[in-house]
Amino acid sequence: MKLRTLVFRYAVFAVIATLANLGAQRAVLAVRDDGWALMLAIAVGTGVGLVVKYLLDKRWIFLDGSTGARAHGERFSRYTLTGVFTTAIFWGMETVFWMIWQTDLMRELGAVIGLAIGYVVKFQLDKRFVFRPTGPAAAMQTGGAEQVR
C-alpha cells in the first residue's frame, strides 16, 4: 500500500472513530445529568471508538486477514493495551478543556485534539506491537503496513 493511501485511510478512519466516540458521548449525556455523567460518557465513547477503529484498522490499514475468536482476542487485547497511553492523552485533553471552559463545544474540541494526537502515537504502537507479522509471514514481510512504500 502506498504511503498516501495509508495516510488517507488512517485519517478517514480516525474521523469516523472520533465521530462514533463523540456520538456515543452525546447519547450518554442526553440521558444522564448527574455528577458521573461526563466520566460515563467519556468511557462509553472511548469503548465505541475503540471497537470501530480496531475493525477498520485491522482490515483496511494493516490488511490483517486473521479470523477466529483466538486471533481477534489476542489482537484486540494488544490493541486495547496500546490504547491505554493514548487514551490518557485523549481523556486528559478533553477533561482539561472542560475544566477550563466548561462548555460542551470546548470539551469536544479538547477531545478532538486529544484523539488526533493519540491516533498518531497509536499507529506507531499498533504497527510495532499489534499487527506485526508473526511466524512464516514475518520472514516474508507480507501484508499490512509492512508494504508501505
Rank of each mutant, 00 (worst) to 15 (best):
Lys2Met: 12
Lys2Leu: 07
Phe8Cys: 07
Phe8Thr: 14
Arg9Pro: 00
Phe13Gly: 04
Ala14Gly: 14
Val15Phe: 09
Ala17Arg: 00
Ala17Glu: 02
Ala20Trp: 04
Ala20Cys: 14
Ala20Asn: 08
Ala24Tyr: 02
Ala24Glu: 07
Gln25Phe: 01
Ala27Lys: 01
Ala27Phe: 06
Leu29Asn: 13
Arg32Glu: 06
Met39His: 15
Ala41Asp: 07
Ala43Leu: 15
Val44Tyr: 03
Gly45His: 03
Gly45Cys: 03
Gly45Ala: 08
Thr46Ile: 07
Thr46Arg: 07
Thr46Gln: 12
Thr46Trp: 11
Leu50Tyr: 05
Val51Phe: 08
Lys53Ala: 15
Lys53Trp: 02
Tyr54His: 02
Asp57Cys: 05
Lys58Phe: 04
Lys58Asn: 05
Arg59Phe: 07
Ile61Gly: 03
Asp64Ser: 04
Ser66Ile: 04
Thr67Trp: 14
Thr67Leu: 14
Thr67Ala: 15
Gly68Asp: 08
Arg70Asp: 07
His72Cys: 04
Gly73Phe: 05
Arg75Gln: 11
Phe76Asp: 10
Ser77Gly: 15
Ser77Thr: 10
Thr80Ile: 00
Thr80Cys: 10
Gly83Met: 02
Val84Asp: 10
Phe85Arg: 12
Thr86Ser: 13
Thr86Tyr: 02
Thr86Val: 11
Ile89Gly: 11
Ile89Arg: 03
Ile89Ser: 09
Thr95Met: 10
Phe97Pro: 00
Ile100Arg: 12
Ile100Gly: 05
Trp101Pro: 04
Thr103Arg: 09
Asp104Gln: 14
Leu105Glu: 15
Met106Ala: 05
Arg107Cys: 02
Arg107Met: 11
Arg107Asp: 14
Glu108Trp: 08
Leu109Pro: 01
Gly110Ser: 08
Val112Lys: 03
Ala116Phe: 01
Ile117Tyr: 09
Ile117Lys: 11
Val121Lys: 02
Lys122Gly: 05
Lys122Ile: 02
Gln124Glu: 11
Gln124Met: 13
Gln124Pro: 01
Leu125Gln: 06
Lys127Gln: 12
Arg128Phe: 04
Phe129Trp: 12
Val130Leu: 09
Val130Met: 05
Gly135Cys: 06
Gly135Asp: 10
Gly135His: 03
Ala137Trp: 04
Ala138Asp: 15
Ala138Lys: 13
Gln141Ser: 12
Gln141Arg: 13
Gly143His: 01
Gly143Phe: 02
Gly144Asp: 03
Glu146Ala: 15
